[in-house]
């Protein structure tokens, strides 16, 4: 496979992996329940379990190359790691873990600050990995239809649907503009670069407004009346997968009860 853009590759995997034709309801049920359990329970084991199960599903069931999964996870992990280090080192109160005397004040690292930092990191990673499972294995169109079926407000689904489609259009436009600018100014200096980015973003903003108008005109021409209707052909949810998810969720709940005090540094 050719090395493409991340967004294109995600979409390609979503459409070609062995799980792409399985029911989005099953996947949504797994992901949403795992997500809720992951972020709402205190245990650190739960997110790790979700992370492992999601990774196994992504790598072995959906056969996504490990390099790609790692690459996808690396971007948010970098940001997340930085935030969690800041939480660990500068937040918290109560019992001190270390005290660093500096000339003008004493920098205290708190025990519960470090605990929060680590717990936050683990939780978000768990949540991300199960979201990635959904995104990497399910064509967007199926997610939209499924969301609509489970009574997510139509406006939200329609807005997401349009965003999904036009993100690709605007990335293409941005790329064209960037190339055109590089041809004219080159990457001569840092300052020109900043200026170019400014010009492009301004231009892009106007483009989005115009695109909105043209798309609406085109939709009207095919009888748009304020509701985007879709063909709702979805694969049937697999009973086995639903039962497995329920079992998995129950185990998570049990584990969280027995391990809720585990993460104390």
């Amino acid at each position: 496979m050719t090395e493409g853009h991340l967004h294109e590759e995600i979409d390609r995997h979503a459409h070609t992996n062995p799980l792409s034709k399985s029911s989005p309801f099953t996947k949504l049920f797994f992901v949403l329940s795992a997500l809720v359990i992951c972020v709402s329970l205190p245990s650190p084991i739960v997110p790790l379990a979700v992370l492992s199960v999601s990774a196994v599903l992504i790598l072995f069931m959906a056969r996504i190359p490990i390099s790609f999964f790692v690459k996808m996870l690396s971007y948010p992990t970098a940001m997340l790691g930085l935030s969690c280090i800041i939480i660990a080192l500068f937040f918290g109160d109560g019992e001190a873990l270390a005290e660093v005397p500096l000339p003008w004040f004493t920098w205290t690292i708190f025990k519960n600050g470090v605990t929060t930092g680590i717990a936050t990191f683990i939780r978000v990673e768990g949540a991300l990995s199960c979201l990635f499972f959904l995104v990497l294995t399910t064509p967007m169109t199926n997610i939209f239809v499924a969301l609509r079926r489970i009574r997510i407000p139509a406006v939200l689904v329609e807005v997401s649907l349009l965003i999904y489609r036009y993100i690709f259009v605007f990335i293409e436009i941005t790329e064209k503009m960037t190339t055109a600018q590089e041809l004219r100014f080159g990457n001569s200096s840092w300052l020109t670069k900043i200026r170019s980015i400014g010009l492009i973003s301004g231009n892009l903003f106007i483009r989005t407004m115009e695109q909105g108008e043209r798309t609406l005109t085109a939709m009207n021409a095919r009888g748009y009346d304020g509701t985007i209707r879709m063909l709702e052909d979805l694969p049937k949810p697999s009973k086995a997968a639903l039962v497995a998810t329920v079992l998995f969720d129950s185990i998570l709940l049990l584990v969280s009860i027995y391990s809720k005090d585990l993460l104390v540094v």
Binding site: A221, R222, R229, L231
Partner: peptide, 27 residues
């Protein structure tokens, strides 16, 4: 029926099939 100059103006749905179905569903 009206086919617009730039197909990106017209194709808004997440798949080809959903897009082609949009008009008939509106009817």
């Amino acid at each position: 029926g009206f086919v617009f100059q730039d197909p990106n103006d017209q194709l808004f749905a997440p798949t080809v099939r959903q897009d082609v179905a949009f008009g008939p569903l509106n009817l």
